[in-house]
Amino acid sequence: MIASVFKVATRVRHSVAAAAVAASLLGGCAVNDTGAAEVWDPIETPNRFIFSINRAVDIMAIRPIAVIYRDWVPEPAQKSVRNLLDNLGEPVVAINEVFQGDPSRAATTMARFLVNSTLGVAGLFDVATMLGLQRTKTDAGQTIGMWAGKGVEPENGGFYLVLPLAGPSNARDATGLMVDYAIDPFQILPIAFNWDFWYYSLPRYGLNVIDYRSRTMFALDDIEKNSVDYYAALRSAYTQNRAELIRAKRDKTDTKSELQRRDNLALVR
């Protein structure tokens, strides 16, 4: 029963990926986008539907667990969980950094991974940072956004998409998620060596969800409390934040874009 649910989930995931690739190609056609327009949300009705289901699940299960985790688990333990999950994610970060044209950064990330996996006891302790190897985080959504066509502002990530459980996303970032999933050695290895789902993948997913939720508690509560349409406020905040991350990557090669966009924004107003 459970297994079949996951099979279905995988199939859905694949079709979403295909749709997402197609859409980001389409999105890539838009030119002269100032980034100030409303987020493109052609499937708002289904998005809002998923959003409401996510919220119900969150209120009933995820948020209460996250509150307990945040308030009752000792902080060093929380930090170690975070380090462990981050360490498992480093190979994906390194691969993305190679594709973002930053091999030296990728080398640092791999060095971090090797140091933390050994000296850091399987990633529980972030020894690498103490050694001066700073952590960077990136994902394939950013890689796609970085290399998108010249006229495409980072605010334009294709259509907006609310993923079950994962929440706010768009065509570009959902595609990125699929790519990251596909290239992650710690997703490939469990399949190749038939690691037990219940002892590896499920705990990893579960911890990620709880850790993520406990960290986002304040921001999400704040947006919810101070908005008249939570869905729209979150859609805007998500899009702006992702755009900022991608713009920072692009600005390494083009310092003008941020300043130009600020002028554009002022003009639109």
């Binding site: 994902d139 994962a166 998620l177 999933y181 997913y205 992702r242």
Partner: peptide
Amino acid sequence: MPLLACRR
């Protein structure tokens, strides 16, 4: 991994 995208 889902959720990573908007954690930051």
